[in-house]
Each structure stands twice: as C-alpha cells, then as structure tokens.
Design a protein around this nucleic acid. Sequence first.
DNA 1: GTCCCATACCTAGACAATCTAGGTATGGAT
DNA 2: ATCCATACCTAGATTGTCTAGGTATGGGAC
Lengths: 107, 107
Amino acid sequence: MGRSAVNGQLDLLLLASLGAGEAHGYALIARIHERSGARLELQEGSVYPALHKLEATGCVASRWADDDAGRRRVYTLTRAGETELARRAEEWNGFAAAVRGVLGAAS
Amino acid sequence: MGRSAVNGQLDLLLLASLGAGEAHGYALIARIHERSGARLELQEGSVYPALHKLEATGCVASRWADDDAGRRRVYTLTRAGETELARRAEEWNGFAAAVRGVLGAAS
DNA sequence: GTCCCATACCTAGACAATCTAGGTATGGAT
DNA sequence: ATCCATACCTAGATTGTCTAGGTATGGGAC
C-alpha cells in the first residue's frame, strides 16, 4: 500500500482520536499526525469514507458546524463508539503481542 | 478480513520465523501459531503465495527435501532476506509506536 | 487391502481496506 | 484578482489476504 500504511487500524486510530474530544475530519488527520510522532500521514480519501462508515455503524455522530471558518462536519464518539474503541484497542494489543512473540523468538 | 488478520505483517512474520532456522511452509504455520501464543492461525492459501513472492524477490531460497515424509519444500532466509527482515522489523516497531502514541493520548 | 485422515503443497478468484487522483467550495492573504 | 490553505467528497484502482477449491503421499484403523 501507500506510504503511511495504517494496516487495518484506521478505525481504531480515528475512534481513539475522537476519544480525546470531538473534531472534524481535517483536524483528525492533524491530530493523528501529531500524536503518532509525525509517523502517520492519513489521506483525506481514506479518512472521510472511514468516518462515513463509522457513522453508518453508529460509532460516531456528526453535525454541521457553520461557523465563520466555513462548513465543517464535527464528529463525536457515541456510546457504541466507546465500546468499539475498547474492543479494537484490545484486539490491537493482542495482535501486537502476537507479533512481538514471533519477532522476539528470532532475535 | 478473516479471523487471523495479519494486517500486512505476513512477510515480516514469515521472515522472522525463518530467522529462527530453515523450515517448510506447513511448519512455518505451526511455528507462528506457537510463538504468537496461538493468536495467529495463518492459512495455507496465504502462506504459500507469500513464500513464492519472497523467493521471487530473493528474500528466501528453497530446495526440495525428498525424505521419507514425502515431498517438502524447505525455505531458508537469504542474506537479502535478513536485511529485509531488519527493515520490516524496524518499520513495524515504528508503526506500533505510532499507534501507541495515538492510543495513549486517549486513555 | 482399502478407507480415511494428517501432512504437505498449490492456485484462481473473491473480498475488503486503503490509496490515488481527481473534484467542489470558502475565506484570507497578497 | 489571484492564489493558497482549509475543508469536504467520491469513483475507481490497487493490494494483501482469505476462501475454497484442488493434488499427492504415507500411516493407521478396520
């Protein structure tokens, strides 16, 4: 895949970022860029469809914020989204541990 | 994706497993299953094509072992494969750190 | 002795996640 | 008046992995 390569963790990253407070799509990209130590540079073409899917599955809710800075769609983590975040975080930890197990044996 | 979900780390897992000593495909599946703490159950349909690709790119070499247990294709990590393993391991560590960064900020 | 299962290998096609590459619109700076 | 940053969006391509088939061998059960 591309340069950033989120390897199936896009939803987790978005949910976790929204867990730190509501935000609009463009801000989420910046937030993830920062908190990943500039290692992850998500593309809009990845993020917006993912947010739409998360909304369709009830993990996030959105509203239009029509302030002076132009139109923005602000996303919030729902209760279901928090549950999903916890589930995916645990799944990630399990996977990371599994990879460490395989790598560790080699070194 | 499926149940195991290696999330783009299949090559890394195979190279790392071969780093622990030459093996044939079926044994690699068992090796990864073990060392991942039974968390990863790779499928043959994933592993064999991946090994062929790794051989095509010069990361592994193979030979037919025709012992009493029937035909087996035994894979060995090449010098280039060791380099690639190191590169991918580092890449993985960077990615895992990036995800931790995003997750950590949420908790 | 033949049936079945575990081992061992293989491939085509399906599927899903993400990226590429376009596009629109607004507001502020030059 | 033009350009750039912000902000959102989508279709289609790409890619990695899985599903679901297939072949072949050897050993144990019956």
